[in-house]
Computed example of a mutant assay.
Amino acid sequence: MLKVGLVGFGMAAQVMHAPFLKVLPPYEVVAVLERNREDSKKLFPDATIVRSIEDLLQSDIDLVVITTPNETHLPYALQALAAGKHVVLEKPFTITSEDAEQLIQAGKAAGKILSVFQNRRYTADFLTIQKVIEEGMLGSVHEYEAHYDRYRPDPKPGAWREADSPGSGILYDLGPHLIDQALCLFGLPQHITADIRRQRPHAVTDDYFDLRLDYGFTKVILKAGMLVREPGPRYSIHGTLGSFIKSGEDPQEAILKTGQLPTAPDWGCEPAELYGLLHTTVNGKEIREIYPSLQGGFGKYYQHLYDTIVNGAPLSERPEHGYNTIRLIELAKESQEAKATIPCTQLMAH
């Protein structure tokens, strides 16, 4: 049993972390940091509510899960590691690659597990795309395009992600999902070209991006915006043998927002109407068919983490992955400022 201290109980904690920490038997949430409220009592009635990170770190816990705003990630993680705790950080890992490197070194010095919560590795669509590419169904992929679009024309009151502050904006919010998926599929890119914009009249930070990652033969396109009322395909992947087109949003987040716990045997399964279209050649025969999605499940992140902490299994979501995501965000901003394609430098082995 891993005893958990949960830092923050906002939307990220309530929707993406707490439900899985509640239902997975190897975990027990024993302390929650809430500055002013006691919202976590409904889900964790036996957990102690604390008002400071110092009080939380004095609790009898093994793992600290940090879900608070981006600027707190570095100081809270450093404190937790210094206190001898394993640490999970919500994405983005940190605000700067320099901070990320400092955290990596602190994790090594402490001899504790440090991981970034990249839950979008465990969606039905991405797991299916991994299989399609890894099994060579498309041949050699020459173009991969992924979107994370929304329609939110109006400001969201009190949203720190939309404020003019370090680590805010859509590139830091949704960019880590798309960038991390691309790195999982294709490794480290050679060059990057970025178009980062403020499209909504009230925007004080970026609310649109178009990133182009150059892998030589393979071109990766990553896009996100807040003014896309009618989205196109979420993923369009083209290879030398065929194409895979996938639309729709993974259902887990929407279900979790209703308060439903992830206990059903079919948790993470997509409805058939969201399955992708595979058009390719298999054994010399052309096929064009609906391809069933694999079962996803954000909880797989915590299952793998437990296996790492308790059984010594290799860590799936390594801190170096978090570093590379942040470094590519920095490079994207440099590319935008220069209005130019620039080399992808100072990346760590993925």
Rank of each mutant, 00 (worst) to 15 (best):
L78R: 13
M16A: 14
M11P: 06
E28S: 14
Y301G: 04
K85T: 02
M137N: 13
L274H: 14
D210W: 01
E54A: 10
R229D: 11
L127F: 05
Y122D: 04
G8N: 04
E273W: 14
E249A: 12
L74I: 08
A272L: 10
I290P: 00
D173S: 12
K91Q: 08
K3N: 04
Y27H: 04
P292M: 04
A109W: 01
A13I: 01
I245N: 11
H147W: 12
H238S: 14
E143Q: 12
S247W: 11
L274I: 02
T345D: 11
F44S: 02
R51K: 10
P166R: 15
T345S: 11
V32C: 08
K300C: 10
E34V: 00
G242W: 02
I129F: 02
I221Y: 10
S335E: 07
P26N: 09
I66C: 06
P25H: 04
E90G: 07
I95T: 06
L183Q: 02
E337D: 14
V64T: 12
I113E: 10
H73R: 12
R51T: 03
A194I: 10
G169D: 07
Q79M: 12
K339P: 01
V7F: 00
V65H: 08
R152D: 06
G299V: 02
I245S: 07
Y148S: 13
E249G: 02
Y27C: 06
Q252D: 03
Q190N: 15
E270N: 14
K339R: 15
G232R: 15
H147Y: 15
L222E: 09
C269G: 11
A31S: 13
A313H: 14
E330L: 06
S293F: 01
S335Q: 05
V310A: 12
P166G: 13
R37I: 07
A18S: 04
R229A: 12
P343F: 09
S335D: 08
K112A: 07
G10K: 11
R37V: 08
L43I: 13
T308P: 02
S243P: 01
V30F: 04
H142L: 11
G136S: 01
E135N: 13
D149P: 12
H86S: 07
L138F: 00
D206N: 15
G242F: 05
K22V: 03
P75R: 08
G10A: 13
Q181P: 02
N36T: 13
G232F: 03
K285A: 14
Y323A: 10
D206P: 05
Q102K: 15
Y306W: 13
